[in-house]
Simulated scan of single mutants.
Amino acid sequence: MTAPIFKVCAASPAVTALLGAGPTRLYPHGEAPEGTAKPYVVWQVVSGSPLNYINCVPSTDRYGLQVDVYADTASSADDVVVALRRVIAQQAYITGFGIDTRDKDTHSYRKGFDVAWLVSL
């Protein structure tokens, strides 16, 4: 199992209005296909563990995700972050804010945040 970030985000009209549908430009493993239109989002698992109990086997796993938005403009990146946060926060926890920069080679704006997602087994 893994965090259902794609399923949750792709079901949101606010997210698909910005990232498209069929395909929704939200990619796992921290990589998007070369030539992907912007804005797009990549996510990756950066930590995780079962929620262990003394008297039984774990029934829940915790996934720590890093989510990064790439866009042509700062305002577009901001719009995507806001839409993602609104939908993700209904199912998981936003735990921190990461990078907020502009890539010197591609000139893409990049904004990121971290998520803790509890997944029942």
Rank of each mutant, 00 (worst) to 15 (best):
G48Q: 00
C9S: 13
W117N: 07
V15T: 04
R102A: 00
L18K: 01
F97A: 11
H107P: 00
G112L: 07
G64A: 03
E34K: 09
F97P: 05
I5W: 03
G112A: 10
L118V: 01
Y70M: 07
Y70S: 05
I94W: 10
G35L: 04
V115Y: 09
G30I: 06
K7D: 13
S76N: 05
G112M: 06
I5D: 07
A74N: 08
N52Q: 13
L19H: 04
L26V: 11
Y53G: 05
T16I: 01
A71G: 01
A3T: 12
P13M: 00
A14D: 13
V81Y: 02
T60Y: 09
A11L: 03
C56H: 14
K111W: 12
L19P: 08
I99Q: 13
V115N: 07
S12Q: 02
L18G: 01
Y70N: 03
L26N: 10
A92Y: 06
K104F: 12
V57S: 14
L65K: 08
G64F: 01
T60W: 02
V87W: 00
V57Y: 11
R110C: 13
A10I: 01
V45R: 13
A32S: 15
D103V: 10
Q44N: 12
S59D: 15
D100P: 05
S59T: 12
G98L: 12
A11I: 01
N55C: 05
A3L: 11
V41I: 13
D100R: 04
C9F: 03
P58M: 13
T24M: 13
I54R: 13
L26C: 10
C9M: 03
S108T: 12
P39C: 05
E34G: 12
R85H: 01
V80N: 06
P33V: 06
W117E: 05
A17S: 09
A116N: 14
A3Q: 08
